[in-house]
């Protein structure tokens, strides 16, 4: 009750939390529906241009391209599988998948960087396990962490509701039913 606030109307000095500082209360947090088609935008065009420019470079460093293209197949799969706009799944899987390919890459760049050698490295079970394992770790993170965050948020909201309800009861106890303002609504708080 005693916390001060710079409320919208400037009158809520005794409010515990400013209205516009309540998480996700003041600022809209609309999340687009999964799988919704999105129109082509400038970013997409830029990505296409970058891809076209990098294509000759990929041919120039073909062994590296082969190694990374083969090693990051799980990322490609996740990219295709994730139909959301944000593409968190390929981002998570890709970042860890990349880490799993990097040791084979260092080995390739440390000797003769040929396409055969790149294929041999790809076929090496240890390298394969490292690449797929890293990608799998990404999948695990993608699965577990949101669930944990969701459970935490639910717990926090329930605590918040209980706390505010207790405060309401205390106010009614102190000031009577009139304090609920059911008869009279104060302006400026909608």
């Amino acid at each position: 009750m005693a916390a001060s606030t710079g409320g919208r109307s400037g009158q809520g000095r005794n409010l515990p939390v400013p209205v516009d500082q309540i998480p996700a209360l003041g600022k809209g947090a609309a999340v687009p529906r999964a799988g919704a088609k999105r129109p082509a935008n400038k970013a997409d065009k830029a990505a296409l241009i970058v891809a076209v420019c990098l294509a000759p470079l990929a041919l120039f460093v073909l062994p590296t391209t082969v190694l990374f293209f083969g090693g990051m197949v799980p990322t490609i799969v996740s990219f295709v599988a994730d139909r959301t706009q944000e593409k968190y799944l390929p981002m998570i899987v890709g970042s860890l998948n990349f880490c799993g390919v990097m040791p084979a890459g260092f080995e390739l760049w440390g000797g003769a960087a040929t396409t055969d050698r790149a294929l041999k490295l790809l076929a090496d079970p240890f390298n394969m396990a490292m690449m797929l394992g890293a990608a799998g770790l990404g999948w695990v993170i993608y699965t577990i962490v949101p669930a944990m965050v969701s459970a935490t948020m639910v717990w926090r909201n329930e605590q918040d509701i209980a706390r505010w309800q207790a405060r309401q009861e205390a106010l009614v106890s102190e000031w009577g039913r009139e304090v609920t303002g059911d008869v009279e609504q104060l302006p400026g708080l909608d």
Binding site: N14, L15, V179, T180, Q185, L186
Partner: peptide
């Protein structure tokens, strides 16, 4: 103080509604 209490009560009501919507 009563006016402030009424405002606080209405704020609590809005916060609870919002949290409930989130849940």
């Amino acid at each position: 103080a009563f006016d402030l209490a009424k405002r606080e009560y209405q704020l609590a009501r809005k916060v609870i509604q919002h949290r409930q919507r989130e849940l």
